[in-house]
Computed example of a mutant assay.
Amino acid sequence: MLGGNFHSRPLVVGLDGFRNGWVAVSIDGDDHAISFPADISTALAAPFARAAIDMPIGMTDDGNRDCDQLARDKLTPHRSRVFTGARRWLWEEYTDPDEANIEASRRRQPRASRQLWHLGRKIMEVDAFVRAHRDLDIREAHPELVFLRLNGAPLPSKKTEQGAALRRALLIAAGFAEIDDWIGIARRGTGAKKDDVLDACAVALAACDCVGSVPEGEPPRDAHGVPMQIWF
């Protein structure tokens, strides 16, 4: 269940979070579709063969995961594109980031950045869903690792015109002929940004063709038995 490509191309789904919910991109053979569900349960309500999500899956008590460090190494010199430090206790025990970081310092752990803190609701949403649906093939993926695979070299920032254009071109070459309609029309009024759509497409490609992962092979598991492995 952990490896390989699909020869018959059954339905796969890629998910990227944004402020109002999720960008969900599905691939079913040559057919592609996009939607903007409010929650993970809705996004994954229909049967699927595999889903990939751009969000930490599996967490340690101190926030250190081998997969994060290996992903950062692959993306050098852009190591900061991989967030680190997700810990369940941050959001289970605290509602204020400053108080959570005081506790992190007391535990001699890294403090949570504001960007990581604000991802907490979605991280915990994914965590709860994955732990409640262990029979489903749901994997963590990182769009920047997918784009690195497609391009063969590090890309400029997705926030730049050059970086966005290159990611768009790579996705078109990978079969997403609809990408311009999706980033120009489909996302209007949803709150999703262009790069959210691009990232969801990349993660869907990871779900479709799991050609690599960090770490390789059987992954380590957290205290709840959830694998900690990033696919691309």
Rank of each mutant, 00 (worst) to 15 (best):
L116A: 08
D98S: 08
D135S: 15
D98R: 12
G217F: 04
R108P: 03
E218H: 09
I185Q: 14
G184Y: 00
K193T: 10
T160R: 08
E216R: 15
V23W: 08
V126A: 15
G152C: 05
F36W: 11
D222S: 03
P56A: 02
V126K: 11
H133P: 11
F18A: 09
T84P: 01
E99P: 01
A104P: 08
I40Y: 04
V211R: 12
R188P: 04
A24S: 15
L44H: 09
F48R: 08
V12Y: 07
L11F: 07
G184F: 00
V130M: 13
I172P: 03
M59V: 00
A202H: 06
P215L: 07
G189I: 11
V146G: 10
I183D: 01
G163V: 03
A207N: 10
L2A: 14
V203Q: 11
G191C: 02
I138F: 13
D196Y: 06
P110Q: 07
G58Y: 00
I40D: 06
V197N: 05
N101Y: 03
I123P: 06
L166N: 02
G85I: 02
I230L: 09
I179E: 03
A204S: 13
A49L: 06
L70G: 02
D180A: 05
G152S: 02
E140W: 09
L75G: 01
D16E: 13
D181T: 10
A223K: 13
N151R: 05
G14I: 05
R149F: 02
D180Y: 00
P47H: 01
D68N: 03
L136M: 14
R134G: 13
D39I: 09
P97E: 10
L166F: 00
L75W: 00
F83H: 01
W117A: 12
G189P: 09
H7E: 12
A128T: 15
R111I: 08
W22N: 06
A223D: 11
R131G: 07
F147L: 06
R221N: 01
V130K: 12
F83L: 13
L75K: 01
S157L: 12
R50F: 10
F48D: 10
R221W: 00
F36H: 10
T95I: 01
A177S: 14
R139A: 13
T160A: 08
E178W: 00
H78G: 00
V197M: 07
H224M: 10
A200C: 07
P56F: 01
W231A: 13
M1F: 14
K194Q: 14
T190R: 08
T60A: 09
G3W: 14
L15H: 06
